[in-house]
Design a protein around this nucleic acid. Structure first.
Length: 234
DNA sequence: CTTGAACTGCCTAATAATTG
DNA sequence: CAATTATTAGGCAGTTCAAG
């Protein structure tokens, strides 16, 4: 995924009220950027981090910039725009999907399975015309070189995981895709210490046959590309 | 084109529980 | 029983995407 216009570099002053980030650009100008990440962003939003924002040309927007990238003290790059996660996953599904998902004919987004209550990020139609429902999760919490999910208690995520399990038990193909937008993460782990209930739900899902995949990406100020499969430790 | 849901932490208001 | 503390519930924020 290429950024359509060049990003501007700055320093994070503070992130607050969920949607806002005050940033001092290299030019010295102080701005408030939209923070497109609804998560806790633990370890991703420390004041003083180098950050990159994209300019918004939409005149209707109140905030002229969107926060896209953060660089940690260890020089790891993080994609904070969770909206890109689905786009990144879509790209990799179209171009070079993980083997367990198999080649696909078409991809639909935001699909509610028949009889279900949750919407899933993707529904793939595979070459044998079977359907595969995939839920995408964005991983940004890192400790050492390990990535953890979730970074906060998530009842909604747990509901998704349990519904995936239910679909799998009905014989449908299902997948859970961890999109790791953090260059320092080399493996993905369940955050037992943060949300043990979710960890259990994912293990149950795996046991029920939900295919769980994690991919990491290359991040530069020009683009983000999901390019490597990462091990998952359940 | 218009509308509305989703994303989910944080702050505040309201209620419940505990203590002197 | 009043006063203080603890817990819970609700509303809010900007943007994007999908459905009508």
């Amino acid at each position: 995924m290429q950024f359509t216009s060049p990003l501007l570099r700055g320093t994070l002053l503070r992130r607050y009220k969920r949607f806002f980030a005050d940033i001092e650009l290299d030019s010295g100008e102080q701005i408030t950027a939209h923070c497109p990440n609804t998560g806790a962003m633990t370890g991703c939003a420390e004041p003083g981090f180098t950050v990159y924002v994209s300019p918004a040309d939409n005149p209707k927007r109140k905030l002229k910039f969107t926060w896209e990238l953060a660089v940690t003290a260890n020089n790891n790059w993080i994609g904070v725009n969770t909206h890109h996660a689905n786009k990144l996953v879509q790209e990799v599904l179209e171009q070079d999907p993980p083997a367990v998902f198999g080649p696909t004919l078409s991809i639909k987004r935001e699909v509610t399975p028949p009889g279900g209550t949750s919407r899933f990020d993707f529904c793939l139609t595979r070459t044998d015309h079977s359907l595969l429902y995939v839920e995408v999760k964005s991983v940004t919490l890192a400790m050492e070189n390990k990535g953890y999910f979730p970074d906060a208690v998530t009842q909604r995520g747990q509901k998704h995981a349990r519904e995936l399990t239910a679909l799998a038990n009905q014989g449908l193909a299902t997948g859970l895709f961890f999109c790791v937008q953090h260059t320092g993460i080399e493996s993905v782990h369940l955050a037992e210490h943060i949300d043990p209930g979710y960890a259990d739900a994912v293990r149950e899902a795996a046991h029920a046959g939900v295919d769980i995949v994690a991919m990491g990406c290359q991040i530069t100020q020009e683009k983000i590309i999901l390019n490597q499969q990462l091990p998952i430790i359940l």
